[in-house]
């Protein structure tokens, strides 16, 4: 199976690889995995008091598509409010990277990583901030 040009480009030049210090109060960490293939993905988001994602880092141990998906996601979420970031669907990633059907689970993993990182940030903040808005938005959707 051939990787798309965009996957290869992200694979060769991954954006925002690395980690933030885990104990930084404004960092949310999401670690998710795909048990079928054993891929593991860590996504960290640095989120401001206003709920806007200021920066992102990832580390992914997996195939080219998993690495490209997480690399692309770090670019995608930067500057977005968490309420918007949490609605990002894997289909956006599939489209951008031209992922074939057998690699769709890599994009699902990246979507789950965003949700897990935001959930972690919320938990660390004590669940107070921005959670009031969440049910409202859910109703609208």
């Amino acid at each position: 199976m051939a990787y798309s040009e965009k996957v290869i480009e992200h694979y060769n030049n991954p954006r925002n690889v690395g980690s933030f210090a885990k104990d930084e109060p404004n960092v949310g960490t999401g670690v998710v995995g795909a048990p079928e293939c054993g891929d593991v993905m860590k996504l960290q988001l640095k989120i401001g008091d206003d709920g806007v994602i200021e920066d992102a880092r990832f580390k992914t141990f997996g195939c080219g598509s998993a690495i490209a998906s997480s690399s692309y996601v770090t670019e995608l979420v930067k500057g977005k409010h968490i309420d918007e970031a949490i609605t990002i669907k894997n289909t956006v990633i599939v489209k951008e990277l031209n992922l074939p059907p057998v690699k769709i689970h890599c994009s699902v993993l990246a979507e789950d990583a965003i949700k897990a990182a935001i959930a972690d940030w919320r938990k660390r903040r004590g669940d107070n901030f921005a959670s009031g808005e969440q049910p409202l938005r859910a109703k609208e959707a």
């Binding site: 670690v31 998710v32 795909a34 048990p35 897990a116």
Partner: peptide, 21 residues
């Protein structure tokens, strides 16, 4: 399905994966 509702990697195992990598 193995992956259904099963995306969270146990923290100790994740630590191990990152450490070894």
């Amino acid at each position: 399905k193995l992956a259904e509702n099963n995306k969270r990697v146990p923290p100790e195992l994740a630590e191990l994966v990152f450490e070894v990598q």
